[in-house]
Amino acid sequence: MGDSQKLLGFMGQNASALKKLWYESVLATYPPETAQLLRSKKDQFSNPVGYTLKTMIEEVVEGFLAEAEVQELAAAFHPLIRIKAVQGFSPAEAVSSVLKLKHAVRELLAAKASSGSGSDVLEELDPVIDELMCSCFNLYVDCRQKLSEIKEEELKRNFYMLLKKADLVEDKNTG
């Protein structure tokens, strides 16, 4: 991730506050009844969405600290985007989870205005966020694309023997 000493330092100092702030801001995209559930149930299986969100935040912040490649950070976002892509969120709403990281950083910076190094941190953060946004946007579109493919393939599977009879599918189809 190149030279990002200021950002690293800032994140290192504020990791837990940052996680919390960011987490809450993404939770706020759900109705309060739902957010409470996502927050309170810690089991990975009885609360898949909450767990995914929590894991993503951990991975991204820890990834930043470990100076991971942007692609790796983006990969950490993907499970959440995949969920949001079918939860009725618009693309903008879905990828805003990335923006919310930036906002959380800004909010923390504003709270610690005295340090004065805010603009440096943001300058280092901006290009990463931009790339993450693009990557997540791509994934959202991929997911929607995937849905149409799945629809098509499901139809083919449901009528497989008929299509086969009419020579409309390959004989050996990979399920």
């Binding site: 995209t29 109705p31 957010a35 969120f89 618009s90 709403e93 923006l99 906002h103």
Partner: peptide, 16 residues
């Protein structure tokens, strides 16, 4: 926060 709110003005069943 205001920025995002503006960006995401569209009402949604899933948004509180």
């Amino acid at each position: 926060k205001e920025l995002t709110e503006n960006l995401l003005e569209k009402p949604n069943l899933l948004r509180g």
